[in-house]
């Protein structure tokens, strides 16, 4: 039950894109077509879960015992960059099909602020399971990271669907491209605000 509440809150209420503004660049950049949006979401979910696993371990097994938490930013981004490279290499060898689907998105993910953002969020912020609040343990961290990634995917895929429809309508010249996408995202964010009532 606790996990369900935390998942719903991460996917809908605190949607990483529409209420926390993390990962907006790929959101606007590769959401023109549903197929690319799905690919990007898959890649982000995969990397985000893995990255959170590694950075959680780095934080609690290296940085905290050594008392050098101030190295967090440097350490985390290095781990993520290395991880993305490794995933790319391994995927190419092990599953060419999956690499075909996700490969082109992987290099973009290092600088996707959602990945680093969630990694930092998960170790720095106290989360509340009904009852007590505490820092997350490893399993909870990975679950919540995956849930955030699912929220990212949901927003991304819905948005791509809307943008495909937008291509078919006559948009005033000055609104074309990013401006109308932003305004659409604003309306979606409003809709997502409605979820605040359910948790």
């Amino acid at each position: 039950m606790e996990y369900i509440i935390i998942i719903i809150s991460a996917v809908f209420v605190n949607n990483i894109l529409l209420s926390q503004f993390l990962g907006v660049c790929p959101f606007l950049g590769v959401s023109n077509r549903s197929s690319t949006a799905i690919g990007m979401s898959g890649a982000v979910m995969f990397v985000m879960a893995l990255a959170t696993l590694c950075t959680w371990l780095l934080h609690y097994c290296v940085l905290v015992p050594l008392g050098i938490e101030f190295m967090q930013t440097v350490g985390f981004i290095l781990v993520i960059a290395a991880l993305v490279q490794m995933v790319e290499i391994i995927l190419k060898k092990v599953s060419p099909a999956l690499y075909q689907a996700l490969g082109i998105f992987l290099p973009l993910i290092t600088t996707n602020c959602a990945v680093l953002g969630v990694a930092i969020l998960v170790v720095n912020k106290e989360f509340t399971f009904p009852g007590a609040s505490h820092y997350l343990n490893l399993a909870q961290s990975v679950v919540i990271a995956t849930a955030y990634a699912a929220g990212f995917g949901l927003a991304m895929i819905l948005f791509a669907g809307i943008r495909e429809q937008l291509d078919l309508v006559e948009v005033p010249a000055s609104f074309r491209g990013t401006p109308i996408a932003l305004i659409t995202a604003g309306i979606m964010a409003m809709a997502f605000m409605g979820f605040a009532g359910i948790v």
């Binding site: 912020k125 106290e126 509340t128 609040s133 505490h134």
Partner: peptide, 9 residues
């Protein structure tokens, strides 16, 4: 302190 805030602690 409390952990019950909407945005955490």
């Amino acid at each position: 302190s409390t952990g019950g805030g909407f945005g955490g602690e």
